Structures are given as C-alpha cells and as structure tokens.
Amino acid sequence: MPRPTTKNDLMIAAKENYEKLNLIISKMTEEELNTPFDFSKDEKKKEAHWKRDKNLRDILIHLYEWHKLILNWVHSNQNGEEKPFLPEPYNWKTYGDMNVEFWKKHQNTSLEEATDMFNKSHIAVLESAEKFTNEELFSKGVYKWTAGSTLGSYFVSATSSHYDWAMKKLKAHKKNCK
C-alpha cells in the first residue's frame, strides 16, 4: 500500500500494519524470542538501530515512545502550548541519540509490560487521529506547528510506516535464527 494521504487510508494502514506486526510477533518461536538480535554480519544494515535494538521488547518500546511523542505533541499544541515534535534538546539531526535514551530508559521493562504499553499507545494514537478531519490531517498549512508538513504525515510515520520498520527488523531476525 502506498503511503497514506487521506484519513481513511491512514486509519486502514495503521490498523492493518498493527495486525500484521502482531501476527509476526505471535508466530515467533521461543528461540527467536530468546536469541538477541545480531545483524553485524549484514553489511547493508548500517543504520544505528540495527545495533541498538537487541530484542522484541526494544522494538515495542521504540514504537511506544514514538506514540508518546505524537500524543504529547498533538495534545500540547492543541491546548495552546507550542512545542516541537522532538523534545529538547533533540532535533532531526540528533534524534538517534533520543532513540538511544529511550532504549536505555527501558532496559528493565519486561516484554509483557512493553507489549501492554505498545498496545495501549497504539489505540490512543488512533483515537487521537480519529478526532481530526481529513483536511486537518492532510492539508498543508492547517497547523503552523506541523512546520510545513501535514499532521497526517506525522501520524503515518508514528504508525503504519514505523510498523513496517518493525516488521522488517523482526523478519530479518527470524531469518538469522534459522
């Protein structure tokens, strides 16, 4: 499915990719769940996240923390408190450092807790997106706090696109376990 550009497509893609991700997770074997991620032998996997995340919990926490980012950002700006999407001191050049901080923060979070947090935050993000009209989500210039982008593009990034990222990572891990 191409990147959503309407509210309807956003909601469908978010729900479908969430279900696909959960299906992959439900089919993970004990070995796959208990083997730490290791992508060091694949030279194509150079991005920092290939080294950062070591297990399913780390992926779910990453998704959860990005859900929190959009929820907090939308809530603050809707209530008249102008805030950038990325919290201080981060920006789009340093957000990798923020992701590492998320990772560090949750090293004592259990997989069960991470799963629950992710599932609840997914629902909260969809409920938040549902409150906006198609025009509010996908017309540029509606909200000055979206910095020339559309609000919907942030919701797509925090849901369906991020779920695609998670599925690719889990599939690569499953392949490594064979």
Rank of each mutant, 00 (worst) to 15 (best):
E16A: 12
N17S: 11
E19A: 15
K20I: 06
L21G: 01
L21E: 02
N22Q: 09
L23M: 10
I24S: 01
I24D: 01
I25G: 06
I25F: 06
K27F: 08
K27Y: 07
K27L: 14
M28K: 06
M28C: 09
M28E: 05
E30Q: 13
E32T: 10
N34V: 03
N34I: 03
N34M: 10
T35A: 01
T35Q: 07
P36H: 10
P36W: 09
F37R: 04
F39I: 03
F39S: 04
S40P: 04
S40F: 05
K41Y: 05
E43T: 09
K44T: 12
K45S: 08
K45D: 07
K46T: 14
E47L: 11
E47P: 01
A48P: 05
H49S: 11
W50A: 04
D53K: 06
D53H: 09
K54D: 03
L56S: 00
L56G: 00
I59A: 00
I59N: 00
L60Y: 01
I61T: 03
H62V: 01
H62R: 04
H62K: 02
L63Y: 01
L63D: 00
Y64N: 04
E65R: 10
E65H: 02
E65T: 03
E65Q: 09
W66D: 00
W66P: 00
H67F: 03
K68V: 13
K68S: 08
L69K: 10
I70V: 15
I70H: 02
L71R: 02
L71A: 06
L71C: 06
N72Q: 14
N72H: 14
W73M: 08
W73G: 05
H75Q: 14
H75G: 08
N77C: 11
N77F: 11
N77Q: 12
Q78T: 14
Q78F: 10
N79F: 10
N79L: 13
N79C: 13
N79M: 13
N79T: 04
E81Y: 08
E81G: 07
E82G: 09
E82Y: 15
K83F: 11
P84W: 10
L86R: 07
P87F: 12
P89Y: 14
P89T: 14
Y90T: 10
N91Y: 12
W92C: 07
W92P: 08
W92Q: 12
K93E: 13
K93T: 15
K93P: 02
T94W: 12
Y95D: 08
G96V: 12
D97K: 15
M98V: 06
N99W: 02
N99Y: 06
N99H: 07
V100Y: 14
E101F: 05
E101S: 12
F102R: 05
F102Y: 15
W103M: 06
K104P: 02
K105Y: 08
H106A: 09
Q107A: 05
N108W: 07
N108D: 15
N108L: 14
N108I: 05
N108K: 15
T109D: 03
S110V: 10
S110E: 08
